[in-house]
Design a protein around this nucleic acid. Structure first.
Lengths: 117, 117
DNA sequence: CAGTTGTACAACCGTTAGGTTGTTGGTATC
DNA sequence: GATACCAACAACCTAACGGTTGTACAACTG
């Protein structure tokens, strides 16, 4: 799957508060769908769907323990997001830095009007 | 607006590749809706909707320049996401660290007791 | 074996999201 | 004032999402 597609799924997965709750719970330890469903006011099936979304996003993996299928958080996927975010945050900050420098120069020579876009 | 709601909107906003493209473009400098629409194979109205979503998420602000309304990237909102992500990444890593310690202790105990089965 | 538990699958339903077209509103420019 | 331009608003369509119910299957338990 492309990085573009992975980003789509990861961001979309974390856009839902129920799924963020599930991630938060799994950060504290593995859990089954049934256990994950307890604190949520919805059916186990609905939680199962949410887990499936997290699985498709690569944020959760499942194993097999008899009839149980514990969910496990794959925290490395977070790196994909932070990498994307940091890239453009830095780019924006770099731009601000340059813009500040320009404005400073304009202050020094207060005779021309700016053309900064 | 609650932090929960802000997170919903920010993650959902960045789940769309068109909107991530817009953010990437704006990291390089402010732009109008018309300019943002050029590289995208869709109508200006559609791009306008995407910008509106980014605006609601707090990722973009607009100003007024005659009949133009330039879009400006508000990169500080990224902090909200990175804070959430880092929190649970660290929690998961801490859990792994403790688990590793437990497993190490179990290895030591096994060696001491010899446990010939 | 029967019964219970944990989970998955399928069908359905109401709401939202992403896109279109058409129309309207400000703001230059002629 | 007439015209052209940028952008917003409204209505509409289709597809996807988040939830439900019902059924089914596999594995433990009695």
């Amino acid at each position: 799957m492309s990085a573009e597609n992975r980003l789509n799924r990861v961001f979309a997965a974390l856009a839902d508060p129920t799924r963020r709750d599930i991630v938060a719970r799994l950060a504290d330890g593995d859990a089954t769908v049934g256990e994950l469903a307890v604190p949520h006011d919805m059916t186990v099936q609905a939680v199962s769907k949410h887990v499936h979304v997290l699985e498709q996003a690569g944020l959760v993996s499942r194993s097999r323990d008899a009839q149980r299928r514990p969910c496990h958080l794959e925290a490395e996927v977070f790196d994909l997001m932070t990498a994307w975010i940091e890239r453009y945050r830095r780019q924006a900050e770099e731009r601000f830095r340059r813009l500040d420098a320009v404005l400073e120069r304009m202050d020094e020579t207060t005779e021309q009007e700016g053309t900064a876009s």
